[in-house]
Design a protein around this nucleic acid. Structure first.
Lengths: 166, 166
DNA sequence: TATTGTTATACTCTATAACTATA
DNA sequence: TATAGTTATAGAGTATAACAATA
């Protein structure tokens, strides 16, 4: 938060009083702090940063985590189906899936009925890693609830869903 | 991202038909729809898509729009100060500012007191474009309020601010 | 020595076209 | 012809190191 009023005219003497992460700026952001897109972006970046740091130990990025969850919940799913569900470009999914396969977390099994398709599955190791990741994810969510309150979290969920498919 | 005519505030009985852009997925997303990071990301992407489409006519991306707003509100600001206020890496700001200068929207004036600094200013053309952009931005925000309600918008603002500096 | 702006670079994420092999 | 997967590529966005000019 700014320490001074918005129309601070005077230049404070060498404000080097910034702590790491806190920018003591008397810069007027104008209408930006009221713009939903701006707020949404700042919040998303902050939440992702916390999520990424939280799951660093299991080596999963947000996208990889979501892919593992969907494979686990829908064993045998094809790549196209998974990509459609998560709004991932199929071309971009290939190297990502390659990484999961290389790490022994997921498999591409040949689909018996249709030789064009793969049936995606988690390995035992993938399922085990996902259990650890889920626990970490829960701690991340708990941190968010500490900020928002249970009631606030429910309200935020509803509001974000209203925007999700604008 | 254009809204589709098929409004239908109806309860999806079983399966929604596949329209372009709407994937008829019976894919189980598991815990993802309850994950704040996931919801935040989906909402941010949707809102940005609408913003970008709305401001396409003035040729401004979200980052450029925010930069013009801050320059206008703080004429004479240095590049470092602007970057600190908007959390932009200074190295990344250079080509972006070059683009605004090339388009005649903003200027780097030499700072008389300190020859290391630039004093950033909008040109008349930049100010005029920003006026048009602001009007477009307002229509974008109005679309969001139509989704959220005035009360919902206020609540969302508060909740996002609580997450912004996690 | 420190600060301002810059260049170069690299890595992620995303988007599109074109190809292959199967259906 | 259409579909599933793949490759190549290009564009944003973001991050860090190193440098020149200036303080």
């Amino acid at each position: 938060m700014a320490a001074r009023g918005k129309s601070a005219r005077r230049k404070p003497a060498v404000r080097k009083a910034t702590r790491p992460g806190t920018v003591a700026s008397n810069v007027d952001l104008g209408s930006l702090p009221a713009a939903l897109g701006y707020l949404l972006r700042r919040a998303q970046v902050a939440v992702f940063a916390d999520f990424i740091a939280t799951l660093d130990g299991v080596g999963l990025r947000p996208g990889q985590y979501s892919v593992l969850i969907v494979i686990e919940g829908n064993p045998g799913l094809s790549q196209r189906e998974l990509c459609a569900a998560l709004d991932i470009q199929e071309a971009n999914f290939v190297p990502m899936m390659n990484g999961l396969v290389r790490r022994g977390l997921a498999q591409r099994r040949p689909s018996p009925a249709d030789h064009r398709r793969y049936a995606l599955h988690l390995t035992a190791r993938g399922a085990a890693l996902l259990r650890r990741a889920r626990a970490l994810h829960r701690s991340h969510e708990a941190r968010l609830v500490a900020r928002l309150g249970t009631r606030g979290r429910a309200a935020l969920t509803r509001l974000l869903q209203a925007l999700a498919n604008l």
